[in-house]
Design a protein around this nucleic acid. Structure first.
Lengths: 363, 363
DNA sequence: TTGAAAGCGCTACCAT
DNA sequence: ATGGTAGCGCTTTCAA
């Protein structure tokens, strides 16, 4: 006898002089067993140092109480936050999390889906940029329940919990316009990688148009989400003959990089240059200057997604759930009314949001 | 027939007119099957839309290729980084990660260990603060291989990959002294939660002593790792009758909080006050001023830990592995030579590290 | 309330 | 090189 080998319900059953079925019952539904026998079994269990084998259990019960979670990279605080939201709700409900990073690579995503299938995960939550069609199709073909965060999806039957990217972005730009800025640049994320980035750019462009401001392609830079790319982008913008007086950044990381570069060039933020971010990372409130940004409800999206998924798994709700959470513009110190006396700006619509009301991610 | 039900190797075997044993072989060790039959089987597999059931496989093979990873909270960038290191190495070697947050709560840790046992995880990696004795004992009793990061451990037979907390902290303080500071405060982490915090404090105290500087208890604050607690601590220090001219912070988050508060009070960093951090978060290089801090090899520790664990699982190395990685003091803009003309500071040992050489975490 | 027994889908040993 | 088959440890009817 291998002294290391764990004991099984069979051993426990023998020890307690009951059947394995009974042991199984005290494990899964203690009520169904007479108190007396239950205690006998419990005692036998710790006499045998019994440890439940979830593998065997899952195999026969056909569920694992494990959720797959895919993020681009756990290293980005904003994704750590969704993950935490998922994790917290899941743990409270007896589910564990299998974590997968894609590193923004679609192939990895496919691998993960495969892995999840093999591991017989109960359901999966996708976070972050999402090139809809093909992957969603692939997911559907697996018959695994899943929910998507960050971004809405056309399909009427796909679960998601997102926020209105377009609208939040629109608000940011509108706010900048309201401060009197008319040369507004944008440091965007990569459109090819992140549909969110694209959406934010569309909002930027639309807002400019709505206020009769010209769209200047050279004011728009497409960059990866890193501090140094934010610096590069800003360096470029500052070299432009008539540089923007405000820059709308695709996320806080880019915004901070941009600020670093601007300061390096001797500009004061926000007096000489206004900058806005997106995400509201924890650090953003403590940066110098504190960042004006859009607070994305990352943790809440995670929690919500886990909730939807788990309720779905429990059969508590079968129809698709689609939620849009509120994202909020947080005005802090990195933006200010334009200083330079340039031709007074004749904004036609008032600075108050107006169009934004009926606008949405769809365009 | 349930159209949803997945097909099994049995179905594949039937379709390919071979035995299940053969199918299993092409799954696990394709070489052992003649090319011809292998192809037949492969074809049958995708004819049946076969998806391997890892649950069944693991149950009978007695291994899951899953690693448990426990962190205090994935939300702290520094722990996200270890996790990424683990994840990357693990994924490259066919292992997946089951993620558990403890929220700095020992009870949760115990629950996780239990969970891991039930799920028949192959091994586990513990990251972060670690109250040695009881939990290590508990882990040993599970017979699960495990490795600890961040912190060394007395046991000769416990795997760990850490760095020298004491020494790095000592260096930071010594560096400050070398800049002429003699009133040096410390904003430390909670000693009861994090042994690292304690170690750093011991180093601080030792270094002061070695340079004949008085230890002032009122200069030392014990705080949780949050920006706002950094602010509080600094507010307190600045109100002191003779405030410190330099503050050594237990991590970058506290340091940034401290800087925010100091600036708020009108102090210039580093001219009026020097501040150092610990961890070298990504943001730290891009903060204003860029933070002088200790670069902790978080990612590398994670990778290394995964490597040790996996090699151990593969039986490639059975004896305990204990590594100390290098942590490095990164001098940036938040520290400067002391300005105020106070009695010239007669540091006895030169500012060059001297004692630190033979010092270690042990005291 | 409890027991007997047939799987769950795969691996691995023993044969051939 | 391939096949037969006995488990792995649990859940879940069906009976008693």
């Amino acid at each position: 006898m291998n002294p290391q080998s764990q004991s099984t319900i069979r051993d426990v059953a023998r020890e307690a002089r009951v059947s394995v079925a009974t042991v199984s019952r005290v494990l899964n539904d203690p009520q169904r067993v007479r108190l007396k026998t239950r205690e006998k079994v419990l005692k036998a269990m710790d006499h045998c140092h019994y440890v439940y084998n979830a593998l065997a259990g899952s195999l026969s019960a056909r569920k694992t109480t494990m959720l797959g979670v895919v993020v681009p990279t756990i290293t980005n605080p904003i994704f750590a936050r969704v993950t935490k939201g998922i994790q917290d709700y899941a743990a409270q409900n007896g589910y564990s999390i299998l974590l997968g990073n894609t590193d923004y690579n679609e192939e990895n995503e496919l691998h993960l889906i495969n892995l999840f299938q093999e591991k017989r995960i109960d359901g999966v939550i996708f976070n972050g940029p999402w090139r809809s069609a093909p992957l969603i199709l692939r997911m559907k073909s697996t018959n695994l329940p899943f929910v998507i965060t960050w971004q809405k999806v056309k399909d009427k039957d796909v679960n998601f919990v997102a926020f209105d990217n377009f609208r939040s972005a629109y608000h940011s730009v509108e706010y900048l316009i309201g401060l009197g800025h008319r040369r507004i640049g944008m440091i965007a994320g990569k459109f090819s990688i992140s549909e969110r980035a694209l959406l934010r750019w569309k909002a930027y462009r639309k807002c400019l148009g709505d206020y009769d401001l010209p769209y200047e392609p050279r004011y728009v830079l497409e960059k990866g989400y890193s501090f140094s790319e934010g610096e590069e982008a800003m360096a470029y913008l500052l070299d432009l003959p008539s540089r923007p007086s405000a820059v709308f950044c695709g996320n806080d990381i880019l915004a901070i990089g941009a600020i670093v570069e601007a300061k390096k060039k001797g500009l004061r933020i926000p007096e000489d240059l206004s900058i806005t971010g997106f995400d509201n990372m924890e650090i953003s409130a403590f940066y110098d200057p504190p960042l004006t940004t859009v607070a994305v409800p990352a943790y809440e999206m995670g929690r919500m997604a886990a909730k939807i998924l788990i309720e779905n798994l429990r059969g508590e709700s079968s129809k698709p759930q689609q939620y849009m959470l509120e994202a909020q513009l947080i005005v802090r110190g990195s933006t200010a009314r334009i200083q330079k006396k340039q031709p007074a700006f004749g904004a036609r619509p008032s600075a108050e949001s107006k169009l934004a009301v009926w606008l949405s991610d769809d365009r």
